[in-house]
Design a protein around this nucleic acid. Structure first.
Lengths: 216, 216, 216, 216
DNA sequence: GATGAATGAGCATTCATTCAT
DNA sequence: CATGAATGAATGCTCATTCAT
């Protein structure tokens, strides 16, 4: 059909990103295993062989995808946690708001899901994700909870790790929902309301009793 | 040749279950795509061809697996919710305890994860899971929350669906953790403590204020 | 064309030999690298996949070919050398005659040539050939030369290894000729005459002077 | 980027030779099939595309290699045979000495071996080699044997072609050894001793009986 | 001339599925 | 019923060759 041999455009520098984007699209649609190299190539508008000029194997594409896409995101999150103005509560709410934005972007949510789905076949990547993404997120949140407790914002919290997990639970559930059922759903999940309700409930439960104010 | 005379037990009736069990084992270990029919057959102790006497295709095995394994579990959960003695709180705690037991069994948690991972390739199954598992679970929990509110146990809850999601968040997170990182982890997650802390926090936040004022 | 789906004959035991024969044919015709698995399969009258039921890889076919075909031949040679009746000369002539028969069979000569051609890409096989074929041949011939010297048949021979090489030289040349140029040649090389002339010349040169001295 | 300004020496004339040299290196190391155009190009210090400015295809490189490298060598040999001073024996020994030098150079021996290995895939080249190299060598040697017989140096030799082959046998064997097993061998073959012993034996066998002449 | 990014036909290998026994 | 040898479409990857720069 496409008789014209396609201009064979030369753009060594932008190619990797284009290819990763195409790969992500495919992985999101069909999963890693069901995606053929040719799918990715075609979607990127190049020939099959071109892919191998930039990535040595199908696995490598996946790893690059995780590395390139997740790391910057985490860094952003860490920075924003530091800069935030005042209380731990405010910071937690800010983080939840940010996560809400991530959750709204199907492509971004897709990557963690891919990692989960393929963890068994890519143990190295699971480890990488565990250490570079989850561990850093945990440290960030643990720190905020500790800060809140120390400043008297929160009541004493016996196990920070558990708090972190409970805090992230609804985020994870929402992420999964978005990637799995949202396409088939008629009424979309109101991400922001879920997360803000979560913040309200969760903070209510851990906040130090306010003006418990015994009078003299 | 046939050293062990392998009684070739005519157990046409138990076969499907055995095959499904073998399939589950394989899927859990290597994922759906990476599991070969031969793996399943060998694990079940039958020949490759035998499989096709009971299931028409690899996909069919997967679907049967989900159907057969999840439905009974849900039924159990629904029943237990009905029978439970008294308050909504008690029922919610009981459900959480049950889920804790499910979470402790790697095989059981594996199935939802498989569904998630393969939802893209098996839209029918995703729909099935959405309707038969999730929807029913949602209805169950929504009912309990409504009951709690009506009986005055809980304070007014504007959006029951959201409550249900927040309630399930930590359960989902734990499930994912168990199937994905637990194998690589040195210190296991204390499922029960996570869930009981969750119950405490969550219920604290939604319970109706107790000593409401009391007049002298 | 072949609409009838071919009876899918079952013959697990004869297959490997058939496949090796087909592979040898192909390798002889086109060399190892230029032979496609499909060529071999088609020539053996099976489907491509069937090959992998019996050999794990293309390389493995080659190795099996060398092992299966050469070893028995060497064993035969060794035995015949032992049994031979009397003098070293007679045994050497007998060996040459045997080799002449091998040389007349294009398939048999083809294997050593393949080994030579692919030695660079299959160092293991080169080593195997060096040790199992050449070393054993050398030992055999060295022994015969030593025997001849000790019995007074031959004059003292300072370096047996060199004798062995000189003895084998014309055999090797002939082998190469057969596999390389014979197909393109109009007048075939008279193998037997070459070898018998070789025997005459070579033995003339190493035989102990007969009428040793004797004074009148 | 282009750190070394690589003078881009306009040496259009020396290029082909350089490329052939690089190609030979590669072919020797890995064989024809396993050598990639990129290997050759890199070794020659040029870009892949540059190769195609000088040779139309990979096959062409091979053919050029054989043509360019072998022909001069043969010419040298022919000349030296003519010029040599006196007897046929001396000339034969001289030729053997020359061949010994060729045999000591791995690169030179590699070419005939490549021809042998690829004869099946390059019938034209095989024919070329047969006619331009082998036939001329045969003619040369046949001539020397005839000369020796006519001059009474050698005893009558019924079939000169066969003599030539027997004469070349050990040379061929040595060549093969050098290219195939020498790299893996601990004790190298003493080429010169093999060839000089060969000369001694062979000439002993064909020389006319010397002054057998008992006087009356 | 020289480059090297791009191409796509080609090949080894895998695996779900079939069917003669 | 059960088997497992046979099948062949499908897929990841390679590499000779082209051509815009």
């Amino acid at each position: 059909m496409n008789d014209l041999p396609r201009p064979r455009t030369r753009r060594k520098d932008t190619r990797p990103a284009e290819l990763l984007a195409a790969a992500l699209d495919c992985f999101v649609e069909k999963g890693f295993a069901a995606t053929r190299m040719e799918d990715i190539a075609r979607r990127a508008g190049v020939a099959k062989g071109t892919f191998y000029l930039y990535f040595p194997s199908k696995d490598a594409v996946f790893e690059a995808l995780v590395r390139e896409t997740l790391l910057p995101r985490i860094a952003t999150l860490e920075q924003s946690a530091t800069m935030a103005g005042l209380g731990a509560e405010a910071k937690l709410r800010a983080i939840l708001a940010m996560l809400g934005q991530v959750l709204a972007d199907p492509k971004l949510v897709a990557i963690p899901k891919l990692v989960l789905a393929e963890a068994g076949n890519f143990p190295d990547m699971a480890r990488f994700y565990r250490q570079e993404v989850i561990a850093r997120g945990q440290a960030l949140l643990n720190g905020l909870f500790r800060e809140g407790v120390e400043k008297g914002e929160f009541r004493p919290l016996p196990d920070l790790d558990i708090m972190t997990r409970l805090f992230m639970g609804p985020v994870v559930l929402t992420a999964l929902w978005q990637t799995t059922f949202a396409p088939v759903e008629q009424t979309p999940m109101p991400i922001d309301r879920v997360l803000s309700t979560h913040a309200d409930l969760f903070l209510t439960a851990i906040k130090a009793p306010t003006g418990t104010g015994g009078a003299p």
